[in-house]
Design a protein around this nucleic acid. Structure first.
Length: 438
DNA sequence: TCTGGGGTCCTAGGACCC
DNA sequence: TCTGGGGTCCTAGGACCC
C-alpha cells in the first residue's frame, strides 16, 4: 500500500509511532551556579552573555521579576539593585563539564540518545512499553538531580516535536512534577490547542507572523493544515513539523555527532580596539580556538574568513568588512591558519576606527585523511610541527585550556572580553577546585 | 559606561557543461 | 511562427535552533 504522506528526503514517513523523551535541564546555567553555591537556592540568579552584555539564563525567581532573555543587563539596573539579583558572567568551562556529567547519566537509561544541546537530550524509549513511562522518566529526573544537583524536566511523545510540546506541558502544573507524557493522551486535541504556534519547535518569529495572518494560531490548527499549502509556504522543513505534530516521526534521532561544516570563533572586545597589532592578537586567539575544534573532530579547513566590525550601537563612524582566503591546501595547523588570517586582516584593516568585534570562520572543511595535496605547494605540515601541535593539544586538554598558547595570541590581551563576575572553574581547573575546608 | 556567540537546513538563481 | 533542456556546482539569503 502506498503511503498517503510524501516521503521527505528519503525518510520513511509511514513508520508511525516512535517513543521520544526530551530531557531538558531547568534554567541550566543558573542551576550550575547554584550547585556550587547553595545559598543561591530560592534567590533570583541571572547569567550574562560573553562580555557581560545580555541576559542568557535566569532562575525562576529572576523570571518572575520579568527579566527577559536577551535584554542588555544595564536596562535592568534598578531591578538588580533593589531586588538583590545575583549576577554571573558565563562560565562555559563549568557548564560544559556539568553538561557532560548529566549526559553520562542519561546514557545509562537508554542505548539510543541524541545530545541535542548543552542542556537538552532526546532519548528513544521505543521498546520500553512494558514500563510506566511517566514513572521511568520520574526516575531519570530524580537520578540526575541526586548525582549532579541539576534539576531537569521531561516530556514524552511519539515524535521529537511532540516530546518538545510535552516538555512544555510538564512545567504547566506543579502536580505533573516536571514529567508529562502526551502519548495516547485522551485530551490531546485540547492540549495542542493550548500551544501557540510560536512555541512549536521549528516555528519561529517569521512563520508565526505568516501563520497568524492565515488564522493558524495554535498547534492543533497547524496539525490540521493542508500538506500542500504548508510545503508551499513553509518549505519541506515546515511540512516535517506538521507531520510530526500528527505523530509521524520525520526528524530522526541523531546519535553520532556529525562533524561541523563551519567553525566560527568571534568575540566582542572588552573595550574598543584601534591598533592592528591588538587585532592581530585577537584574530590569532580566535584561530587558535577554531583550529583546536578542527583537530578535535579530525578535520582540516580550506577556507578562512576574517571579519572586523565597529560598534553597531554607537554613533561613531561605522565600518564592517570581511575577507575570504582560499588555502592552496586544507590544514588544521594553528600556525599556518594564523598566517593566512593575518594576511586577510591586513587587507581589510582601516586605520582610525574604533573596533568592537572581530572573528574568524573556518569552512571548506574536509576530513584530515582526505586532504588533497597541491602539486605546486609543498606539503605544509611537517612531521615535527604536527607532533608539536598534538603535544600542545594534549597538555591543554589535561591541564586546562590555555596552559600553552601561541605567542601571536598576545600576553596581556587588553582587548579581552569582560567577565567580571565569573565563578571558578570548579570542575576543570586543578587550582579552582572547591575546598571542603580552607 | 553597558547590547552574545555559536550552528543547521532549504531554496532560488546564475554559471557552466554537454 | 518556432530560438533546448537537463544536470551539477556554487553562492546568497532566509528561515530555524540553542
Amino acid at each position: 500500500m502506498k503511503s498517503v504522506y510524501p516521503s521527505l528526503h528519503g525518510l520513511p514517513a509511514e513508520t508511525k509511532g516512535g517513543v521520544y523523551a526530551l530531557v531538558d535541564c531547568n534554567n541550566f546555567y543558573a542551576s550550575c551556579e547554584r550547585v556550587f553555591n547553595p545559598k543561591l537556592e530560592g534567590k533570583p540568579v541571572v547569567v550574562l552573555s560573553n562580555n557581560d552584555g545580555c541576559v542568557v539564563a535566569r532562575s525562576n525567581e529572576a523570571k518572575a521579576y520579568g527579566i527577559k532573555i536577551g535584554t542588555p543587563i544595564f536596562q535592568c539596573e534598578d531591578l538588580v539593585k533593589n531586588q538583590k539579583v545575583y549576577l554571573f558572567s558565563s562560565n562555559y568551562a563549568l557548564y560544559g563539564d556539568m553538561s557532560r556529567r548529566v549526559m553520562d547519566i542519561l546514557t545509562q537509561f537508554t542505548p539510543e540518545i541524541e545530545i541535542y544541546s548543552i542542556d537538552e537530550a532526546f532519548l528513544s524509549l521505543k521498546g520500553f512499553h512494558y514500563l510506566n513511562l511517566t514513572e521511568y522518566a520520574g526516575h531519570i529526573k530524580n537520578t540526575v538531580k541526586k548525582w549532579t544537583g541539576i534539576p531537569v524536566s521531561i516530556g514524552i511523545g511519539e515524535t521529537k516535536t511532540l516530546a518538545k510540546i510535552a516538555h512544555k506541558l510538564s512545567k504547566r502544573k506543579p502536580e505533573y512534577d516536571g514529567v508529562f507524557n502526551i502519548i495516547d493522551h485522551p485530551e490531546i486535541d485540547q492540549l495542542l490547542a493550548s500551544i501557540e504556534v510560536n512555541d512549536i519547535w521549528g516555528i519561529g518569529g517569521q512563520y508565526t507572523k505568516f501563520l497568524n495572518k492565515h488564522n493558524i494560531n495554535n498547534a492543533l490548527q497547524l496539525r490540521n493544515a493542508r500538506d500542500k499549502w504548508v510545503e508551499k509556504h513553509l518549505t519541506s522543513v515546515g511540512l516535517r513539523t506538521v507531520l510530526e505534530l500528527r505523530g509521524i516521526p520525520c526528524i530522526p534521532l541523531e546519535e553520532t555527532i556529525p562533524a561541523k561544516k563551519g567553525i566560527m570563533s568571534s568575540r566582542s572586545f572588552g573595550k574598543p580596539v584601534e591598533k592592528l597589532t591588538e587585532l592581530k592578537e585577537a584574530v590569532a586567539t580566535y584561530i587558535s580556538i577554531g583550529a583546536e575544534k578542527l583537530r578535535k573532530q579530525k578535520s582540516a579547513a580550506s577556507v578562512v574568513h576574517v571579519f572586523l566590525a565597529t560598534d553597531f550601537f554607537k554613533e561613531e563612524p561605522k565600518y564592517f568588512n570581511f575577507s575570504t582566503f582560499r588555502l592552496p591546501t586544507a590544514t588544521a595547523s594553528t600556525t599556518d591558519l594564523i598566517g593566512y588570517a593575518h594576511k586577510s586582516l591586513e587587507k581589510i584593516f582601516r586605520k582610525g576606527y574604533q573596533y568592537k568585534r572581530a572573528g574568524v570562520m573556518l569552512t571548506g572543511i574536509v576530513p584530515e585523511n582526505q586532504i588533497q595535496y597541491n602539486l605546486f605547494e609543498p606539503k605544509p605540515l611537517n612531521r615535527r610541527r604536527e607532533t608539536l601541535t598534538k603535544v600542545i593539544d594534549k597538555i591543554n586538554l589535561e591541564l586546562g585550556t590555555d596552559t600553552i598558547q601561541y605567542a601571536a595570541e598576545g600576553i596581556n590581551k587588553p582587548w579581552r572580553m569582560r567577565q567580571a563576575k565569573r565563578t571558578k572553574r570548579f570542575t576543570t581547573k586543578w587550582d579552582e577546585i572547591p575546598l571542603v575546608k580552607g
